[in-house]
């Protein structure tokens, strides 16, 4: 038996989340859907990967989120010569006041609540792999020591779908650790006109924090209290398992065009994201539409298509759309 949050609690949390959302929309004009999904990712405690062409405001959005949330944040510009120790931290030889000398661990930029991993695919796999533990376990192991990362911990990464020379595509394990992968698209002419009028030099108005770490954690706890009904759980499970071609009851399209399907981590991410979406919508429990709205962002980058899919111009997005039409909500 579950207990639903009261209407007043929901309204309270919704209004606080809306403040964040409004701030994000102020920072990034004409990308309401994107900002909402980013906020959903953050509230669900997941990491978000933004993919888009240069100049669309990916970095600006994350910087705005950092400013609005009041979280401690660091930016890492991923380059090919970046080393794991550059982001996790390293031991330095320090001389103390009492003339003692010792090796001291100096935390890298990963030790912050909100990490902006800019152009993440430009770093070498070795460096990218340094993020795996941090993103999954929110810990860093270095020099025989394990260090907890500050809570909450988010990695918001960006990558460029073009200019692939000299880049290292993210491995599946890395991709799976991102709860959401969002595509940043261009904005409309009216929005662009408005942007030119209000920001002629491209400098956004400085944002002030609307919440702090505690406030954000309260919001995340509220998300955890959103009811996830059995029917929705079953729907998520069926939807995720339908992406796996090795299962006999998966659709024919999946069996022919998908090499690897989504993992249980994807199902967890989808459930938590749906809870966040329900909170943003002011509802105490998750509905089927919440799942359907987030399925593309959560499952899309976790479905590895086969070469036949490439030949047939079938993308992971179209596969998710197909699954949404094939898998019934109630079964």
């Amino acid at each position: 038996m579950t207990t639903l949050l009261s209407e007043s609690d929901i309204s309270h949390f919704q209004s606080r989340a809306s403040e964040l959302l409004t701030g994000l929309n102020t920072a990034l004009l004409g990308q309401e859907e994107l900002t909402k999904l980013v906020l959903i990712g953050v509230l669900s405690g997941g990491h978000v990967l933004l993919e888009g062409l240069p100049g669309l405001g990916k970095t600006e959005l994350i910087k705005a989120l950092a400013a609005l949330s009041g979280l401690d944040h660091k930016r890492i510009q991923f380059t090919p010569d970046l080393l794991p120790a550059d982001i996790t931290g390293t031991q330095v030889f320090e001389e103390s006041d009492d003339h003692g000398r010792q090796l001291t661990f100096r935390p890298g930029p990963l030790f912050s609540q909100l990490v902006l991993a800019d152009e993440i695919n430009r770093a070498s796999p070795k460096t990218q792999s340094a993020l795996l533990q941090a993103m999954a376990e929110k810990q860093v192991s270095a020099f025989d020591q394990t260090y907890d990362l500050p809570q909450p911990f988010f990695v918001l990464a960006t990558q460029n779908p073009i200019e692939q020379d000299g880049t290292y595509p993210l491995p599946e394990a890395q991709l799976d650790r991102f709860a959401l992968k969002l595509s940043v698209t261009g904005i409309s002419t009216d929005t662009l006109t408005d942007l030119l009028r209000t920001r002629p030099h491209g400098i956004a108005t400085p944002l002030t924090a609307v919440t702090n770490t505690e406030g954000l954690q309260e919001l995340m706890q509220a998300v955890a209290q959103i009811a996830l009904p059995e029917a929705v759980l079953s729907y998520i499970a069926r939807l995720v398992n339908a992406t796996r071609p090795e299962l006999a009851d998966s659709p024919e399209l999946i069996q022919h065009h998908v090499r690897w399907g989504a993992s249980p981590r994807a199902a967890i991410a989808l459930g938590r994201s749906a809870c966040a979406a329900a909170l943003l919508a002011g509802r105490p429990s998750v509905g089927f539409t919440d799942v359907q709205q987030l399925a593309g962002a959560v499952l899309g980058h976790r479905i590895i298509c086969s070469y036949e899919a490439g030949l047939s111009n079938i993308t992971s997005t179209s596969i998710v759309e197909h699954l949404l039409s094939e898998v019934p909500e109630v079964c």
Binding site: T3, A227, P229, T289
Partner: peptide
């Protein structure tokens, strides 16, 4: 199953999860 019935009723009422949530409360 009760969850299935709740899901069906939720779809019928277009309540977007509210009926399912209510059905699972004590």
């Amino acid at each position: 199953t009760p969850s299935r019935l709740a899901g069906e009723l939720d779809l019928l009422t277009h309540s977007n999860g509210l009926v399912m949530g209510l059905a699972e409360t004590h």
